[in-house]
């Protein structure tokens, strides 16, 4: 299973995602990257993320993404 940061690096390899607190405001991921990322998370962790959860607040940084995944019962190392 890939870690979140590995998935993000696959989408935008040119960025260091540990250096940003707001991936969207900093231009690391655009709205379509976000959709690609959600699809990758669902496949990787075997979860379904609701359409209403696909908002910037849930994907703006690693802490937010970790919180979202924990809410979906993901307990593996994220």
């Amino acid at each position: 299973m890939k870690k979140v940061i590995e998935i993000l690096k696959e989408i935008r390899p040119e960025f260091d995602f540990t250096k940003s607190e707001d991936f969207i405001a900093d231009g690391y991921i655009d709205s379509f990257d976000l959709i690609t990322f959600v699809a990758a998370l669902e496949k990787n962790y075997g979860i379904k993320i609701k359409g209403t959860e696909i908002v910037p607040e849930n994907f703006c940084n690693l802490a937010a993404i970790t919180g979202l995944l924990k809410g979906h019962g993901v307990t593996d190392e994220i």
Partner: peptide
């Protein structure tokens, strides 16, 4: 505005 439209539809 892709993100806004997506959120509008889902909500």
């Amino acid at each position: 505005q892709g993100r806004e439209i997506f959120h509008f539809v889902q909500t």
